[in-house]
């Protein structure tokens, strides 16, 4: 999703930069009385002059909607940097979420049939709600791998002392796609 946001932001930014550059050049052309500079720009925008008021309105609405989508995507809450594992009158204990994900991924990639590139672990929520996307080799038994992955995640969270916070593990397993 971040990639989509970036792509959209890049397109809008490039359009704004292009528009500003054209506007600046046109202004320079008008001020310096350089028809060689203003006429190509005017020709570039001639098709826009042929548009009706409703067509221009629709175009502006589309651009506004695109910008609104980008704004909503950017301001929605992203995952917290820390996972809460204890909270009482003496204080909280929190663990860095990316670190837990890295730790679980490293340990999972040591399992048979799983490669380090195939593991993608995401921890959601204040308590651990782990989702794991795993790509395995074509010979592997998917059911067995799923059980092994879930067991491994539980054992590893337990081994670092945070097993109690685990709520659920959702696992998606797919076969590794090899280049022909």
């Amino acid at each position: 999703m971040r990639l989509f946001n970036r792509l959209l932001a890049t397109i809008i930014s490039l359009a704004l930069i292009f528009g500003s550059a054209i506007g600046t050049l046109y202004l320079i052309g008008v001020l310096a009385r350089l028809p060689s500079l203003t006429s190509p720009i005017r020709r570039l925008f001639t098709p826009l002059l042929a548009l009706s008021a409703s067509q221009i309105g629709a175009l502006l609405l589309a651009v506004s909607l695109l910008a609104l989508v980008l704004l909503i995507l950017e301001i929605r809450p992203f995952r917290a940097r820390f996972v809460l594992v204890r909270d009482d009158s003496q204080g909280m204990t929190q663990i860095s979420r990316p670190d837990i994900e890295r730790c679980l991924s490293q340990r999972l990639s040591k399992l048979r049939a799983i490669t380090s590139e195939g593991v993608d672990i995401l921890v959601h929520g204040k308590q651990f709600d782990v989702s794991a996307n795993i790509a395995v080799s074509s010979q592997a038994d998917l059911g067995q791998v799923r059980a092994q992955v879930e067991e491994n995640i539980k054992a590893n969270l337990e081994s670092i002392g945070v097993g109690e916070g685990l709520r659920q593990i959702s696992t998606r397993i797919s076969r590794f796609k090899r280049a022909a």
């Binding site: 204080g91 204990t93 860095s96 081994s159």
Partner: peptide, 14 residues
């Protein structure tokens, strides 16, 4: 009042 502990990095010895 409180002591909040943030574990920023896990260095696994095993």
């Amino acid at each position: 009042t409180s002591i909040d502990i943030r574990v920023e990095d896990l260095i696994m010895a095993v």
